[in-house]
Design a protein around this nucleic acid. Sequence first.
DNA 1: AACTCGGGGCA
DNA 2: TGCCCAGAGTT
Length: 194
Amino acid sequence: MHFRNPFELLIAVILSAQCTDKQVNKTTAGLFEKYKTPQDFAVLSQQQLADEIKGCGLYRNKSLHIIKTCKILSERYGGRVPDNLVDLEALPGVGRKTANVVLNLAFGKPTFPVDTHVYRVARRLGLSFGNTPRRVERDLTDLIPEAERGIWHHRLIHFGRSCCTARNPICIDCVVAQYCPKAKKQTQTLSKEN
DNA sequence: AACTCGGGGCA
DNA sequence: TGCCCAGAGTT
């Protein structure tokens, strides 16, 4: 993901929810040429911004969230992106996962963003005994050395998308099935509640 | 904790 | 064309 400053990253990550990186990159490329600061976004109408980010999914909600967030950034934070979890999560359109991504990529903090792929894979493989994303986040943070968290984050997401899928995981071809408490032998598949 | 939102992607 | 998805917000 390409970004030149924490603000651009924040907007890109908000846009990337329920949407592919390709769409986000295509959208932000032109977007950040026209609008560069939180103030530039804060004065847009919802319709104006919605037109700009169409293609990124849920664009009406996102345009409202982004405008509100940019107003807060310019009014309360001097146009800067806060570098702590509490303030980031308080921004409209920013949940824990988005906040952790920004903290990690923009500010170099050792967070472990938990999306649904990471959550599912961690629980199936027994990497965490937690029942909540918060607990999984903590367990993975404890389990994985700081220097390796970035690569493991990508590995888990890729694994979750390609093999350890939500509904029909391909356990038959899984390279870690022998270590997985949830893996089903032969032709059986996982039940969906796992 | 469960439910809603709602548009892109893919079967 | 209809089902699935993923993250944030809501209740």
